[in-house]
Write a protein that binds this DNA or RNA. Sequence first.
DNA 1: ATGCGATGTTACTTGCGGTAACAGGAGTGT
DNA 2: ACACTCCTGTTACCGCAAGTAACATCGCAT
Lengths: 214, 214
Amino acid sequence: MDTTQRTDQQRSADRRRRELLEAADRVVLRDGPQASMNAIAAEAGITKPILYRHFGDKGGLYAALAKRHTDALLASLRAALDAPADRRERVESTLETYLAAIEARPQVYRFLMHPAEGSQGGDQGFDVGKHSVPLLRRMGEELAQVIEERVDLGPESQQLARVWGHGIVGMMHAAGDWWLGERPCSRAELVRSLADLLWGRLAAAGDKVGGPGF
Amino acid sequence: MDTTQRTDQQRSADRRRRELLEAADRVVLRDGPQASMNAIAAEAGITKPILYRHFGDKGGLYAALAKRHTDALLASLRAALDAPADRRERVESTLETYLAAIEARPQVYRFLMHPAEGSQGGDQGFDVGKHSVPLLRRMGEELAQVIEERVDLGPESQQLARVWGHGIVGMMHAAGDWWLGERPCSRAELVRSLADLLWGRLAAAGDKVGGPGF
DNA sequence: ATGCGATGTTACTTGCGGTAACAGGAGTGT
DNA sequence: ACACTCCTGTTACCGCAAGTAACATCGCAT
């Protein structure tokens, strides 16, 4: 029951865990989100039950994997959001960062965006915190926080910031998803168009004359 | 090879198909999106292979079911979009329509929004058109069309309209999803906040002074 | 009656998530 | 040296859902 020893074992376990996650990462990147536990175990050079000992169930592995990428992506986004620049510039650079990320690794992106299966908490009592929230929520909350920190929205600012956070993230996500599938324009054009939308160009534009139905 | 007879049988098959879809609907509404084919067949009073004869595979049934609801929802949305009113009013009423729909039938909503499984096309050669597009895309395209019809965006209007269509739909979707889960405010408030966002209030708001990191 | 096509069934295969039970190997107390 | 206990790893299995093959049946035109 020596503390140092337990720490030692913990360290070893954590290393294994990281190796397994990297193997899982490789498989997901190769086979897409429907990668089987068997395949992941094989890639890691071991067998299924070990994965289950480490992550509880597939949801646990999903969550752990998602957390890695989500943390990384959120770090980049926060950097872009917090840059000492004009707001419009910050918005554009954030969009740019996000789109570049999903363009660079579409497989990972597809994996992250899956609600997939509804997991119920780990029974093994692992240290998995409640990070089962599917990326979009976390991005929305983060953005909401930044908005509330930096933009003056008067009373109700918190509420408004959260709505906007989730809304803007959703806009980014849907547009990015569509763009990634069809590639109808360059990344820069997409960024510009979205920023224009957020800048109220929809309200400013005039009605088109002679449309169908008056 | 008589045409009338074939039409007769077709009619019968179509009726069956509709019955099956309604049964599937009931099950999905009760059990959520992970409803099994067995359960659906049982609800319809038949057995699995019949479902497969009618829909090819689970993806086919998914697509058919999704098409029904999508068509219905899109019809309501188009009505709101095409109302003879001020643009802001139309936007708000469209948001309202969408949110009311997902609020009224969250189970169906959850079902529709799932990418779930990557389906590869039907091999049986059924008459399923390529409507495997998961709702969000269709809503995006529809909205894009309406925007391009009614809003004057100068040159590049088509491109811009499509980006905006998908972006706005994504905003609506993400905000709606979050709102449905947490219910942080009334529907009307949500609608107002989102419309405000689209109306450029983000650009118009001032910087907050004394934020962290300045 | 008889062949034919649509409709329906039972019973099977395959594949995956998840688990039980067993098999060493390294440190530890006696 | 010996047993005891963790930890890591395996094989072999269960349950369940998707999808299929092969058989049974009814209606009908000739």
